[in-house]
Design a binder for these strands. Structure first.
Lengths: 198, 198
DNA sequence: CATCCCTTATGATTTGGGTCATAAAATGCT
DNA sequence: AGCATTTTATGACCCAAATCATAAGGGATG
């Protein structure tokens, strides 16, 4: 989201993490601004029974974990590498200096937060009050449109496992598998060689 | 969130709405920045079966409905007055001029978005994967801490109806009533004269 | 103050998604 | 190639929350 040169100019370092590594944990104090250079990071929580909930999945170019920087609260979730990844990290103070010196960068941060709040709003109403099939479709459509920047007419290959869809929607794997089957029967998506297309 | 004088200086008008009035609807194009002068506004959705989901409740001093201004998307929810209310409204363009001319105002907007994103994150994981009692307690604690700015030791009177709690957590009134009863038995909150305290 | 509607309340019944068990196919690792 | 792990898959059963019904208390309004 923020120009790489600008990040480096303000002293950003680069961190290399392996698949499965934890960048920060729920409850930690936020000290750095992070932006992905390569790879994928997810933010998640585990409830009392150990069930995972994925807040979001971030890919190349995305920044994540900023809200706590602005409001002085601990992280509400963990950040875990889904694949090997490289991440820019810049100290909180430098980050704020960067924002004040670059109004456009600040605006793009604001736009980014607005974007994510928008997504959370849409998913919140889905998760709370819709049937599984509806939730799953909405999630897939969000990924198709906002993550992959595709048009409704394009054919989109869902790059999420059934388990990940379950963890993103708060459902169980079995329910996701059955719902996806049912959605295929209704012609709302296609399963080819176990892969889901929409 | 934004100084009233500043808003007026950039040409903000004032809108008077009555309890139950709709300020904007899901799908509408965002043209104004809104901030509450007095009264309460809720943002909500209705699912296919007509069940309400309350995204948030906003009170004096809060602004709301900005994300769509930044990302050029239609409103993801409706804005409805819970009580009679007065609201500042400032045209999108004037609002952006205000932000660029006042970096501190821009920062406070960013902080506000961060705050709301934080809340949505916490509630998302709650709603998706916890039992009713847990969800309700988390919501009450959020209102106590973030809306009323009280300390854990203070006695907080929950100013939400059982129905509102249901619509904020995605549960049914009956379930909320029964859960609150059960929470009282466990000593986690107090019911006095039908009012809930925590 | 009579009426209406909202809120709180409680019991009975239903049901959809969770849970458990089991397994085959695919993928990753050494 | 061989083994472990993950992913997809399906059937049987269960249970908590939704649904349905019904009602009493409280607040607002003309």
């Amino acid at each position: 989201m923020i120009d790489e040169n600008l990040l480096q100019q303000f002293g950003a370092g680069s961190i290399t993490i392996k698949k499965g590594d934890i960048l920060f944990e729920e409850g930690d104090t936020a000290k750095y601004f992070y932006q992905i250079k390569s790879g994928e990071i997810k933010m998640n929580n585990f409830n009392d029974e150990g069930k995972e909930f994925i807040q979001s999945i971030f890919t190349k170019g995305n920044c994540f974990g900023e809200p706590p920087l602005f409001i002085n609260k601990p992280y509400p979730a963990n950040a875990v590498a889904i694949t090997d990844a490289e991440v820019y990290a810049i100290a909180k103070e430098s980050f704020f200096r960067l924002l004040f010196a670059n109004p456009e960068a600040h605006l793009s941060m604001t736009v980014n937060l607005a974007q994510r709040l928008y997504f959370k709003s849409v998913m919140a109403s889905e998760i709370s009050s819709q049937e599984p099939e509806h939730r799953i479709l909405k999630l897939i459509d969000y990924f198709k449109e906002s993550v992959s920047k595709l048009q409704p007419a394009d054919k989109y290959k869902v790059d999420l496992t059934r388990q990940q869809i379950a963890d993103l929607t708060g459902l169980r794997v079995e329910t996701v598998i059955r719902s996806i089957k049912s959605l295929e029967k209704k012609g709302l998506l296609i399963i080819e060689d176990r892969k889901v297309y929409r």
